[in-house]
Structure formats: structure tokens, C-alpha cells
């Protein structure tokens, strides 16, 4: 019979494939030190093994410093996806918390949060991050998470605030209030479960936005610094050899495209599942 959003998502083939791709990428990232064929920073023979094309020995080839590209992509996933996941979690948690706070408290709290969102949302995120990095110099992955996550909570806050305000007017919430439910009980028992699917959409979209953002920053040299590999700086290393060594460019771009695409598919199928559940009720 009528299933809830999560059950619908699990039953949806494109969503399962997208989820599978993202899970595989995450597992590969976590296991990178054990499954990588080589040390990603090792330069065994910068002359003989320089820019070797993909072969059985080096599935993704080697780079100008004779490092194994597959190993660097796998370790790069650790950094790129780690930063992306961290930034996504930070921005969604921050956004959900502030949006919920604004809707439930109302009054001046709402004015401040909403005002802040309205002002900040007009700022170009990439430029602001670049300006900050340019001012304070290259950043560790942790600071990158704080910076990207801290600038990405606005849309989630907006969505959660709007959804909360809508549900606060509904009779089931009125009924809970009439029973004497505290504000925090309303939030935990009724409102958060109600908006969780919407927050998940926002999270998937945030992930899709943050992966290329980190790659872009690292690509222009402002993100993850060598020798630590990230998808962005692997690409940076390859730009000089665009015509002679395609594997330096194609594999990192493919990694970004596959993960971002999966996140977007997941967001889209999640929206369909939400609509399906609403129609069923």
C-alpha cells in the first residue's frame, strides 16, 4: 500500500543506482590506503615511469612525477569527498537548526535569521571563499570544511523555516499543542520527521554543489595543497599535458561528474518520492 518517502526511494531503480555509486565512492575513499595499488605520493622513477599511459601496471596511468593516478584518485576521493561530506553535513545541520529556530521561536529570532539569510544569499559564494582563502592563505581540509559548510546553510535554512511554518499551522500540530506538547517535542516528534525528506533533498543538492566547489578551489591552487591529492589538484597537475596525457584530465573529471550526477539523481528521485507520498495521503 501507500509507502512512506524512504520506502518509495528504496524501491526506485535510478535512486538505488545513484545511491550505490555514492556508497561505492565513499567506501573506496575510506579504504583507499588498503586498496590503492601504490603510495599516492611515491615517485618511483620520475624519468622512466613519467606519464605512462594506462596499462595493467597502472590502470589510470602515471603523472609527470611518475605517481600512480589510480592511487591518487582513490586517495583524492578521501580528501575531496571527505571535505564535501563534512561541508554538506555542517551546512545542512546549521541550516536546519537555524531555520527550525526561526520558525519555532518567531519574533526577533526569526527576524535576525531571516534577515541574515536574505543578505547572505545575495553574496557570490565562490568569490567570497576565494577572497577569504586569498587573505588567510592556503587552508587545511578542516578549515575548508568550515568555510564551505559555513557558507552553504542558507537554502536549507529557508526550506526548513518555510516547511516548519506551514506544518505549525496544521491541525495535527495544533492537536499536539492542545495536549500540552512543548515546542521541542513538536520539533522532534512532528516537525523534523515531516521535513526530513525535504532536508535530505537539500543535503543531496548541497553535496552536488560542494564537490565541484572543492575541486574548483583546489584546481586554482587555493584548496588542498600538494602533495596531498584531491580531485581538483590532480586535474591541476594534468592541465599542462592536456593533449599528450588525457588520462590526467579524464579520470578526475569523471570522478567529479559521477559523484555529482549521482547526488543530483538522488535529489530528483527523492522529490518524486515525496510527491508520491503526498498524493497517496
Amino acid at each position: 500500500m501507500a509507502a512512506n518517502t524512504w520506502q518509495r526511494l528504496l524501491a526506485d531503480r535510478p535512486a538505488r543506482i545513484a545511491g550505490g555509486v555514492l556508497s561505492a565512492a565513499a567506501i573506496a575513499a575510506v579504504l583507499a590506503p588498503w586498496i590503492s595499488p601504490y603510495d599516492p605520493t611515491l615517485q618511483p622513477d620520475p624519468v622512466a615511469l613519467r606519464l605512462v599511459a594506462p596499462s595493467w601496471h597502472h590502470l589510470f596511468g602515471t603523472d609527470p612525477f611518475s605517481r600512480d593516478v589510480l592511487s591518487r584518485i582513490l586517495h583524492g576521493a578521501r580528501v575531496s569527498l571527505g571535505v564535501a561530506a563534512g561541508a554538506m553535513l555542517l551546512s545542512v545541520t546549521l541550516g536546519a537548526a537555524l531555520g527550525a529556530l526561526a520558525a519555532v521561536m518567531g519574533g526577533w529570532v526569526d527576524s535576525i535569521v531571516s534577515g541574515l539569510v536574505d543578505v547572505l544569499i545575495a553574496m557570490p559564494r565562490l568569490l567570497v571563499v576565494i577572497a577569504l582563502v586569498a587573505t588567510f592563505g592556503a587552508l587545511s581540509p578542516w578549515w575548508l570544511i568550515v568555510l564551505i559548510g559555513g557558507s552553504g546553510w542558507l537554502t536549507t535554512a529557508r526550506i526548513v523555516r518555510a516547511e516548519f511554518r506551514d506544518h505549525l499551522q496544521r491541525e495535527y500540530v495544533l492537536a499536539a499543542r492542545a495536549l500540552g506538547a512543548s515546542r521541542w517535542r513538536l520539533v522532534w516528534r512532528h516537525l523534523l520527521p515531516a521535513v526530513a525528506p525535504q532536508v535530505a533533498v537539500a543535503a543531496a543538492l548541497a553535496l552536488a554543489a560542494v564537490i565541484p566547489l572543492e575541486a574548483a578551489l583546489s584546481f586554482v591552487g587555493l584548496g588542498i595543497q600538494p602533495p596531498l591529492p584531491s580531485w581538483g589538484n590532480i586535474l591541476l597537475d594534468g592541465t599542462d599535458y592536456l593533449t599528450s596525457a588525457w588520462w590526467l584530465v579524464v579520470f578526475p573529471i569523471a570522478a567529479v561528474t559521477l559523484t555529482v550526477g549521482s547526488a543530483l539523481v538522488l535529489a530528483d528521485r527523492l522529490r518524486t518520492a515525496i510527491a508520491g507520498e503526498e498524493r497517496a495521503r
Partner: peptide, 22 residues
């Protein structure tokens, strides 16, 4: 106030809207 909420209760018009579907 909590005590009053226990003693005075309400039933709304639309039971579709007044029960948390989740």
C-alpha cells in the same frame, strides 16, 4: 497551563489533517 491542557481537549474537523501521517 499543562494541567489545563490535560483537562481541556479538542477534536478537529478534518481527521486527515489532525493526525500526524508519519
Amino acid at each position: 497551563l499543562r494541567q489545563f491542557r490535560r483537562r481541556a481537549q479538542v477534536v478537529f474537523q478534518d481527521p486527515k489533517a489532525s493526525l500526524d501521517p508519519r
